[in-house]
Nucleic acid binder design. Structure first.
Length: 275
DNA sequence: GGGTGCGTACTGTTCGCATT
DNA sequence: AATGCGAACAGTACGCACCC
């Protein structure tokens, strides 16, 4: 009875327009066949219409289209299910990666902080070392013995011995002055870094310890020896002079380690110089 | 009332097979 | 080899029901 009513309703639909919707019973019958065989032959479709009364009012062409669309729907559903599965896996993976990323970000922040702290420690430590280094250069004449003076006296009676002392002194300067201005602590009124060559730069017309030292180490040992022998030039602009140490030579002569302050410099702190 | 999902039907293309 | 035919498939149009 119900099937007959549905059939009548379908006929009305077919009469009104081409759109029909199969009844649940018809769909169930078609689904049963589909589960057995998704691709029924033409013969099988005709047999289905004959054997199933509720499908008798459906055209063979419609049956064919129904199976066609049914296969298409299953394919789409399978693809949709596959994509959902992939999506779930990717979401889970994304969550894990986000957590890992968060953990690494925190680790980076911590390391950056530690790096900054260690840099700060290194800088303060380096500054202390540089200050000491400079002080050792500048103040060594006041507070320390010249390394050359601590060693057994060299033979200053001969030009060769004097040159040896001069070379040793130069080596001490060079060990401090081989770098650029970075290795020197710049002081007010002082020229940092290597200076021009010139004998006058040692005791006159110079503006600081660094300039004088660099000027001195730029000289040949023979030139240094000439400067050391030109003692009157040492005192020309000198307002303060102390003999720190005296090295006796083999022939009765002496080599004096002298600390002096020159008048031309206005700032005492930068005028310390020893040679 | 408009947006959306689903089912049905149609169209165009490709492929396999039989025939000529 | 060329041709015709049917089936399968992908894409699309349309109608309906449902939801907000």
């Amino acid at each position: 009875m119900a099937a007959a009513l549905n059939s009548k309703h379908q006929q009305q639909q077919m009469d009104n327009n081409k759109y029909v919707r199969y009844t649940p019973e018809q769909v169930e019958a078609l689904e049963r066949v589909y589960n057995e065989c998704p691709k029924p032959s033409s013969l099988r479709r005709q047999q289905l219409i004959r054997e199933c009364p509720i499908l008798c009012n459906i055209e063979p062409k419609q049956i064919k289209v129904w199976f066609q669309n049914r296969r298409c729907r299953e394919k789409q559903r399978k693809e949709s299910f596959r994509l959902q599965t992939v999506n779930r896996k990717l979401s889970a993976m994304n969550k894990l990666l986000m957590e890992e990323n968060d953990r690494l970000q925190k680790q980076v922040s911590h390391l950056v902080y530690e790096n900054g702290y260690m840099r700060q420690q290194l800088q303060s430590s380096s500054a202390t070392t540089t200050d000491n280094s400079c002080e050792s250069v500048v103040m060594s004449g006041q507070q320390q013995q010249n390394p050359a003076a601590q060693q057994p006296p060299k033979d200053a009676s001969s030009p060769a011995g004097l040159l040896a002392i001069a070379e040793e002194t130069l080596a001490q300067f060079l060990s401090k002055a081989t770098g650029t201005a970075v290795d020197w602590v710049q002081m007010i009124g002082m020229k940092p870094g290597p200076d021009s060559i010139g004998i006058v730069a040692v005791s006159r017309n110079c503006s600081g310890v660094a300039a004088r030292v660099c000027g001195l180490v730029s000289l040949e040992p023979t030139k240094v020896a000439e400067i050391l022998k030109d003692r009157p030039s040492w005192f020309r602009d000198c307002r303060c002079l102390d003999v720190v140490s005296v090295i006796p030579t083999g022939n009765g002569g002496t080599i004096e380690l002298v600390y002096m302050q020159v008048v031309s410099l206005t700032v005492e702190a930068v005028s310390d110089f020893f040679c």
